[in-house]
Amino acid sequence: MSTNRLKFAGAGLLAAFALLLSGSAMASGLPPLNMPEGVTEISREVYGLHMMMLKICAVIGALVFVIMLTSIILHRKSRGVTPAKWHESTSVEIAWTVIPFAILVAVAIPATATLVKMEDTGGAEMTIKITGYQWNWHYDYLDHDIEFFSNLDADSTQAYQLGSDLSPLDVEHYLLNVDEPMVIPTGTRVRLLLTAGDVIHAWWVPEFALKKDAIPGFINEMWVNVEKPGIYRGQCAELCGRGHGFMPVVVVAKEPADFEAWVAERTGTE
């Protein structure tokens, strides 16, 4: 009898939480739930791999849960069932070893293909060297005479402080904005060289599906070919001290002509 009361209490709590969740989701509009598809051929492939894995995992998970719930509902002592005696079956064991293995082989093939593409850093049309510091990024255009530091913008810096009178809600692109973004041309294969001056950082732009560590004494390589002009935002992804949350990455992709104009302006004024 106390168990029954408990079941009702449990159901009530569940319902209350469902309400709470839907309520808070409606209040602020649904926030982003999933990985962005991104703006490069690679990022779309990565997104495809992610969705494929998510679906496979969802199906396997659902299968496990359905079998479990069926047992919980049907095979309970209170229904007066007698437990079966069997506890072994070699053929079943072989089946659930071999079938998952086959699924793994099937997903390993496209994953390998995408990885091979990502790691092929040849054929670059321009190169930018990115150096992580505590706590900003330095961009050095090796083919042009341009280099600069990129810091968190002044508004975010003011708003994040403990006891600040500027609310983060009033700052546009709070914590995801910089004083000077990295600028790249669209439709161009840009090679990015990554290193760091003090501790390890990681350069991450989700829209490009690129994340790599910037390590002192090492030079890491990756490449990007952005299709659409736009502003793409990311953050440092490797704990690098007190300012780790405050060194965003902002990349502005411009049409090649606009990019050339930007280069001319930068080099002309310097």
Partner: peptide, 25 residues
């Protein structure tokens, strides 16, 4: 899971506004 996929790094003391709802949950 959601805020991670949407791009929130771990080990940060503060975050961009789009991550607020799930952090509050």
């Amino acid at each position: 899971h959601f805020i991670g996929l949407a791009g929130m790094p771990r080990r940060i003391p503060d975050y961009a506004l789009q991550f607020t709802t799930f952090n509050q949950m």
